[in-house]
Design a protein around this nucleic acid. Sequence first.
DNA 1: GTCTCCATGCTACTCAGTTGCAACTGCCAC
DNA 2: GTGGCAGTTGCAACTGAGTAGCATGGAGAC
Lengths: 153, 153
Amino acid sequence: MQLFMKPAYLTHLSTAEAAIRATGERLTQPRVAVLACLLASERATSHLDVAGMLVDHHAVDRVTVYRVLEWLVNQGISHRIAGDDRVWRFMINPQQTSAKSAAHGHHAHFTCETCGQTFCLNKTIPKVDVKLPKGFRPFEIDLLVRGCCAACS
Amino acid sequence: MQLFMKPAYLTHLSTAEAAIRATGERLTQPRVAVLACLLASERATSHLDVAGMLVDHHAVDRVTVYRVLEWLVNQGISHRIAGDDRVWRFMINPQQTSAKSAAHGHHAHFTCETCGQTFCLNKTIPKVDVKLPKGFRPFEIDLLVRGCCAACS
DNA sequence: GTCTCCATGCTACTCAGTTGCAACTGCCAC
DNA sequence: GTGGCAGTTGCAACTGAGTAGCATGGAGAC
């Protein structure tokens, strides 16, 4: 008898598998499971969240979660955000498949000061017009909006 | 005989003292010294940098440095930035004196990926035009530009 | 099926930041 | 100037995110 709902990430396992195959790197169970977690989450996810989601069906060592998340960033599949609580949070890049260039450019996020959750704003890319001092060259622009999300308003 | 140069922050002690008096809170040596350090620094300063600057003339316990820096943020005198290395860095607010509202609004910073230093861009406030999803209310916008600073270019 | 090399899991570690508590001190009232 | 007290500081111990080293395991090539 199954008393608990299936975790949402299980429905993303095949997508995750395909994305990892596309990189040409090794296909392993922890990589598929961690990526499926990110795919299933609409919000920025910490390593602890990932480990928590996996604990029932694909228990993965916490160090491995760290390494897989870093690997996903290196592959350009996801990117990471430094939160106010000194915890890295991870999100799938809008262009899910692995083009490494996707890791660079604009990132825009919204952090709710009430519930602490972080959302990606990349669907509505903000216009930013920055004038830098002489000699400063920009590579990448991160935008973080703090406020109150729809659920907490 | 004085073999070493006077640390730069010593010239800011009186300004720091005045700013702390203006808050109406207690005037203590660690508060004056830490604030003088921030005033003397054009870049974002970590608690370790502050403790290092003070070690010769105003040695302050590291826990006290943490507490004073947090107090300065609460007073609206400075603000803090979460860096890529999970270390808080602190900067004086452009409107140095203590209006608490100064802590809210726009913050714009530039982080050099070569030397790791963070600069404040508030002299040239960038234009940001963000469209948020329905129900999301913004309080504050942080902008972080990554790139290469003038010295490293 | 075998072999090789990369990924994983485990343990131990580092380090930024926090907590608890006793001692100290700035400031106000007298 | 003195006394009292609340807020601040310093110290030691702790927490928790992230990292390093190393033996083992397993994916993929042959």
